[in-house]
Design a protein around this nucleic acid. Structure first.
Lengths: 232, 232
DNA sequence: CTTCGTCAAGAGCGCTGCTCTCTAATCGCT
DNA sequence: AGCGATTAGAGAGCAGCGCTCTTGACGAAG
């Protein structure tokens, strides 16, 4: 009786998978706005209304793609970090930066879905929170490891962060354990700087201006690493 | 004869203005995806096809809004910079940062249109290039002024930029005259960092994490200012 | 064998961008 | 002043969209 139930369930899971796969391909070629349930159904040889058995609305399909996307970039970042010597903190930072940029360049529309303009009227459900910080968690671990190893020496150019930021730092500290508030705010500068660079490149702000983007990226990530206090 | 021609022309200009105004209001409430030519026409008491006499396609209307948006944020930044003492370079930088953030918070959908995910299938025409760098030009002037005044002392934490970036720096130097390549790359770090912060806040990446956003923003902009070498 | 839950299919609603045609107003010129 | 040319709006229509509702078939469970 369980086997029979799972028979149906398995077909259902298979179809859900096929829908998200096709949707992801459409997302990659057309962008989020061009994602059409009818087109997915057409490609599956289904009638459009049948899709609604599996995803009650277009937004729910989008949510599935967002979660997949966060997991994909998170995994890419984890793999990049994992391929470095544990005590090569600066190398790990650069590997992570490169992974983010390369994943973004390889999946521009998915990146835009995750880190670009929010889809209007779309409210991300709570399921997206956990996958959304996978990449950030990796970064936090690098900083925390470096700090624990006594290798984190922030240059004395930033003032101490205002006391009011301490409570926010408390939340972030779950990602960067034991780090002092100053390190945490610097880490935020670096992390937002990384995505600022990638977004500028991907969203066209470098058009007609910057041509050697990989080199500029590498160099700027080095500057940010130094700002955080990662060793040379 | 000229007056008569301009009679028609004036009505036409008036209508174009009214269309963009209504469209901008719709953009502000619904977002770019929700901008509908039919809705604009409806609000004007026109039939939808009549709009096409003024904007040949939805994308052209979007282009007009993009140009307006770049000019709006550029003007806000120029005004902020103008209200500071010319030799208070750090103050000017902070004023500019604040202007960008506040304009973005006040016009989230317009900001998303300018600095968020590009609209799929939309290719920005060349008309947008000049307005797009109005804000950047202000920033470049601040750095250039500080450098000329001998007040720019970049902390010795970044390696010299690789030689290949020199040609890109050449292009950027039109915005930051006389600045050495090292200053230019640092300025790019700061500028992308500013927009990285604003985008993270606006696009929801700080949800469930950062609550004191204004304070964090101020502090991080200070760090970036120091990285560029602006005085305390 | 019947009952019940699941599923695909189809029709349909209201919306979109965009095109085409027709009519009326307006303009420039003789 | 009147005439040909230009410009404007109105309306119908096409193909696409998300989404809903109903209908009929099928397979598992009692």
């Amino acid at each position: 009786m369980n086997a029979s139930r799972t028979a149906r369930e398995r077909v259902r899971a298979e179809l859900i998978r096929e829908i998200t796969d096709i949707a992801r391909r459409q997302l990659a070629t057309e962008g989020a706005a061009g994602l059409s349930l009818r087109a997915v159904a057409r490609e599956m040889g289904m009638v459009s209304s049948a899709i609604y058995r599996y995803f009650p609305s277009r937004d729910d399909l989008l949510t599935a793609l967002i979660i997949d996307g966060y997991n994909a970039i998170g995994e890419a970042v984890e793999r990049a970090d994992g391929s470095c010597a544990r005590d090569d903190f600066t190398g790990r930072w650069h590997a992570v930066c490169r992974a983010v940029r390369e994943w973004a360049l390889a999946h521009p529309h998915e990146y835009a879905l995750l880190y670009g303009s929010p889809v209007p009227g779309y409210r991300a459900p709570d399921d997206t929170i956990a996958p959304a910080v996978r990449d950030t968690a990796v970064f936090g671990r690098i900083v925390a490891d470096a700090h624990r190893a006594g290798k984190l020496v922030p240059p004395p150019i930033c003032p101490p962060p205002p006391a009011i930021l301490a409570e926010d730092a408390e939340v972030v500290r779950s990602l960067i354990p034991d780090a002092p508030d100053d390190v945490i705010t610097r880490a935020i500068v670096a992390w937002t700087g990384l995505f600022g660079m990638v977004s500028f490149e991907l969203f066209g702000q470098f058009n007609n201006t910057i041509t050697h983007r990989a080199e500029l990226f590498e160099h700027n990530m080095t500057c940010l690493a130094r700002l955080v206090g990662l060793p040379e």
